[in-house]
Design a binder for these strands. Structure first.
Length: 665
RNA sequence: GGCGAGGUAGCUCAGUCGGUUAGAGCAUGCGGCUCAUAUCCGCAGUGUCGGGGGUUCAAUUCCCUCCCUCGCUACCA
């Protein structure tokens, strides 16, 4: 079984998530989905880094304990990911007790091996800042913040013998050209390694100065500082040393980071792995910054972009597509709502959205809404089939090599060619002239080629691509579906499948200043009532399906498409724990296992009728992809389904036990 | 200062292991179609490929040098 383990950095909880965090994590998510769709077993890790000086200070400033503060910011990250369509396999926190045990075990191991020593660390210490300054950081010999002269103090600390592994690391990087990519960062690291002897890494802080950290196993007077704590998350999340996930996934590890943490990941971490006797990761993938108004985003400049607001304003698909399409992986790129709008309108609305819209309309007008029989391809169709095959082959090669921009561009070559093909074939003329065989052939060619393009957008925009596949009559992806089967093949779209009457997947965004772009609609319009003539070649009776009926209404709710139903992630979960929410009469905080690794927290308004203790072990139906929401300070991720009756509230449960997380359909 | 990356059409970028008229998308102008989300298709461009020098029959692509931007690192050779 081929596998892929991909990680983002764990994000430091001294600030709320911004676009940079979102980019890294969305890239990881897209790569993870792509791997899963190409037959790999995957593990995707993200999390939060929560120890250190700055956290203690930030917590104090917020009037909280470090623990409370970390919980709050970590929750902000955890609840952001589903809003960005990101679905990690696990979320690690450095304050997780299991992580602390791993870090201690690793420190002990490296200490036993003789690669950690006790030494003196001297520097200019500013008591106001509670930190050391190097000579060059001091301006005119005084602290830049406090304008006071720092005191030179010597402090005993523990050091990791990084220099011992310097040559071995340099050799490894030379022998494995893909170890650090893109190549510009590889040469940067080699240049650091070649330019002199590495300084050993200071890995501790005395408890007299810092207690918010993991205690050294060999000296209770110290906590470990920064990198031994943070970097080890990549193996502790897999259950190192004995976890099955570690054995399964570590050999396929690759990390994704922004360029600011190149050195820790390219130098500290591999040498730590060497000291631990562990194999190195396969790839370190390094990306650049998103610039806003031509400079790096920063709070003081006030140009920080909020990813959640962008997702709400432009839709998930638009945001994720833009991020992957606009940045050349490795280089910096500029973010602006103007370029996002331009990209959205040109690529998604005009090219792709309109392609689907015009095609589906024609299938309904000319073919009764069913996928026509393919027929025998002629020269023009063979050209499209070949182009599709080339485009997809390129896409696979480029996407896997992190060249998302070029990968998507090659997909768009196909999409643009389809618009051109439609113009050349002019189905409206074929229809008028009664040339039904060619008409069916032309529309089938467009539908099938569009499907092949859209299916490759699933990793980029899972939800929107899924909806488009349904509109195209292909429906949700089969369980054992493998994207690689799309290269060099043709005709997966079954004739006779009914297609949506229309598609308004990516409505153009009004670019006029001040206009508030609407969130793109994600549902298909209802079918028009008028049944169209059906001159297209009839599909084989076995494949024929009932054409969509005109919209009707049921008890006040408008009739919906099957695709609408599919947007609901309904599952059966098992209650692991339940407790009353403090200060609320009706709310229970319920932990529900839905087979995700860690149980979900759901806040449910059922406390009036249900005793928390009686709920444990019970299976309940829940809506799992409801937008997370904070209720009474608790983030609720989902809702429990229930029926209200007089004097009570019945929870929905399966009549017989089912696996936790079983999908309701 | 050293090291690394980059400087290609108005914008965002691709590309050239040296070789006929240097590409794409967006934006701009003109024309066409009507199935479509005022969408789509066609045509039209423009560029001393950062400056200068060198090697070569031939350089945007190789070498040298200078300028500018970004990053890392440092005053130690």
């Amino acid at each position: 079984m081929k596998r892929q383990y991909i990680t983002t950095p764990i994000y430091y909880v001294n600030a709320r998530p911004h676009l940079g965090h979102a980019y890294t994590t969305i890239v990881a998510d897209a790569l993870n989905r792509f791997a899963a769709l190409t037959g790999k077993q995957t593990f995707f890790l993200t999390g939060t880094d929560e120890h250190g000086d700055k956290i203690v200070k930030a917590a104090q400033a917020a009037g909280q304990t470090p623990g409370e503060y970390c919980d709050a910011i970590s929750a902000a990250y955890q609840s952001l990911w589903p809003k960005l369509g990101v679905a990690p396999s696990a979320f690690i926190r450095t304050t997780d007790p299991a992580h602390a045990l791993t870090v201690k075990a690793a420190l002990q191991k490296v200490h036993d091996a003789g690669d950690i020593y006790f030494g003196e660390y001297g520097g200019h210490y500013c008591f106001g800042c509670e930190r050391f300054y190097t000579e060059k950081e001091l301006q005119g010999g005084v602290c830049p913040d406090h304008q006071t002269k720092p005191e030179y103090i010597a402090e005993k600390n523990y050091f990791f013998k990084m220099s011992k592994y310097q040559d071995r690391l340099a050799r490894h990087i030379r022998e494995n050209p893909d170890f650090i990519r893109p190549a510009q960062y590889r040469s940067e690291v080699l240049s650091i390694l070649d330019s002199g002897v590495l300084e050993d890494l200071c890995i501790s802080r005395p408890k007299s100065r810092l207690t918010w950290g993991i205690e050294l196993p060999f000296d209770a007077g110290y906590v470990t500082y920064v990198w031994f704590d943070a970097l080890l998350n990549y193996v502790s999340a897999l259950g190192w040393p004995d976890g099955k996930n570690f054995a399964d996934f570590w050999p396929s590890a690759q990390h994704l980071v922004a360029k600011d943490i190149l050195k820790p990941h390219a130098i500290f971490w591999p040498t730590m792995l060497m000291a631990l006797g562990l194999p190195l990761y396969n790839h370190l993938n390094v990306h650049g910054y998103w610039l806003s108004r031509d400079t790096k985003m920063s709070k003081s400049v006030g140009n920080v972009v909020d990813p959640e607001a962008m997702a709400e304003k432009y839709g998930l698909a638009g945001l994720r597509y833009f991020l992957l399409r606009e940045m050349t992986f490795g280089s910096d790129a500029s973010f602006s709502e103007q370029s996002l709008t331009a990209r959205f309108n040109a690529d998604l609305a005009n090219d792709l959205g309109n392609l689907l819209s015009r095609t589906l309309t024609m299938v309904h007008k000319y073919c009764g809404g069913a996928v026509p029989a393919a027929g025998e391809p002629e020269a023009e169709e063979r050209a499209i089939i070949e182009l599709a095959s080339d485009a997809l082959e390129n896409f696979h090669a480029l996407f896997g090599a992190l060249q998302f921009s070029r990968a998507l561009e090659s997909l768009w070559e196909l999409i643009r060619a389809l618009n051109k093909y439609i113009d050349a074939q002019a189905p409206w003329t074929l229809f008028k002239e009664g040339r039904t065989a060619k008409l069916g052939l032309a529309l089938y060619t467009v539908l099938e080629a569009a499907r092949k393009a859209v299916v490759h957008l699933v990793p980029v925009m899972p939800e929107a691509a899924g909806a488009m596949l349904v509109q195209l009559g292909f429906g949700p992806l089969p369980k054992d579906y493998d994207l690689t089967d799309e290269i060099g093949s043709w005709g997966f779209l079954p004739a006779g499948a009914s297609v949506a009457a229309s598609s308004n997947q990516f409505p153009r965004i009004d670019a006029t200043p001040g206009a508030m772009p609407e969130k793109p609609a994600k549902t298909a319009k209802p079918c028009p009532a008028a049944p169209a003539p059906a001159p297209c070649p009839a599909p084989s009776p076995a494949a024929a399906q009932t054409p969509a009926q005109p919209a009707t209404e049921t008890e006040g709710c408008p009739e919906i498409e099957f695709a609408d139903f599919q947007r609901l992630d309904l599952r059966v979960g098992t209650v692991v724990a339940a407790a009353k929410v403090a200060g609320a009469d009706k709310l229970l905080e319920v932990l529900i296992d839905i087979g995700e690794g860690s149980p979900r927290t759901v806040v449910a308004g059922i406390a009036e009728f249900h005793d928390p203790d009686a709920l444990v072990g019970r299976q309940v139906a829940m809506l799992a992809n409801l937008k997370p929401r904070k209720l009474r300070g608790v983030v609720s991720r989902g809702m429990i389904l229930a029926v209200r009756r007089e004097g009570g509230l019945e929870l929905l449960s399966p009549a017989n036990p089912v696996p936790s997380g079983a999908k309701i359909s």
